[in-house]
């Protein structure tokens, strides 16, 4: 290819792969935060407190309608204004975690809503506790609905991690821009970053699809058993 230098490629590859590790850690941590917070947001919307439900609903709407980069800047710079200093990693994880929590809470909500009303009524009739209703009856039935959403957002959060570089989180994209600034060569670092992203996100998407089928198949079997 035009002006492509293989020696330079080999020179920068270890540095990029090391940064890829950070990208994966950022995506994983952010996703964990989003999974937990998203569930909290979804459950908060099912409480009988109207005001809480309204506040959570509107906050989710707000977070979902505004750009993640701006939220990352907001979290990073607003803290120090009030005397709270957050490291780039901490503020990045808070911002990306909150952003994806608001997406995932919609997935949780859709999953919980997909369970027929009769199931809830049956639980009430059987006098099951709230905990048992959720853990034994509702959540197992909600899983097939939520798996595709969870998978998509896992790949999504991975592809959004380059935005963390704007506040100096040293992930893959940050490494590429640093290399570009040091050597004035952009072709190799940015092309490699693209290739690394593809090499991770395509197999990941495929694995998620497989997993989805597997879950469906396994749950389909349990449902057959329940009918007998």
């Amino acid at each position: 290819m035009f002006d492509w230098r293989w020696d330079f490629t080999i020179e920068i590859l270890p540095r990029l792969l090391e940064a890829t590790g950070n990208t994966l850690i950022a995506a994983g941590l952010g996703y964990l935060i989003a999974l937990v917070l998203g569930l909290v947001f979804a459950l908060a919307q099912r409480t009988p407190y109207r005001l809480l439900t309204f506040a959570v609903r509107e906050s989710i709407e707000f977070i979902r309608s505004t750009p993640l980069v701006l939220q990352i800047f907001f979290v990073f710079y607003v803290g120090p204004q009030f005397g709270i200093r957050l490291s780039p990693w901490t503020s990045g994880m808070i911002a990306i975690g909150l952003h994806y929590a608001s997406y995932l809470s919609e997935v949780y909500r859709a999953g919980l809503d997909s369970v027929p009303k009769g199931q809830w009524e049956a639980c009430t009739a059987l006098n099951l506790s709230v905990r048992r209703t959720y853990t034994k009856i509702v959540i197992p039935q909600a899983i097939p609905t939520v798996i595709p959403g969870f998978g998509n957002y896992l790949v999504g959060i991975f592809k959004d991690t380059p935005m963390l570089s704007v506040i100096g989180v040293t992930e893959l994209f940050h490494a590429a821009t640093s290399i570009g600034a040091e050597t004035y060569r952009f072709l190799e670092p940015f092309t490699l970053v693209g290739a690394i992203f593809l090499a991770i996100s395509l197999p990941a998407a495929m694995l998620i699809r497989r997993f989805e089928d597997w879950i469906r198949a396994s749950l389909g079997m349990t449902k057959l058993h329940a009918k007998d």
């Binding site: 592809k159 959004d160 991690t161 380059p162 935005m163 570089s165 994209f173 590429a176 940015f190 970053v193 693209g194 992203f197 593809l198 996100s201 395509l202 998407a205």
Partner: peptide, 8 residues
């Protein structure tokens, strides 16, 4: 879809 918008 497989790479990030920022990278593109």
């Amino acid at each position: 879809r497989g790479t990030s918008l920022l990278v593109q």
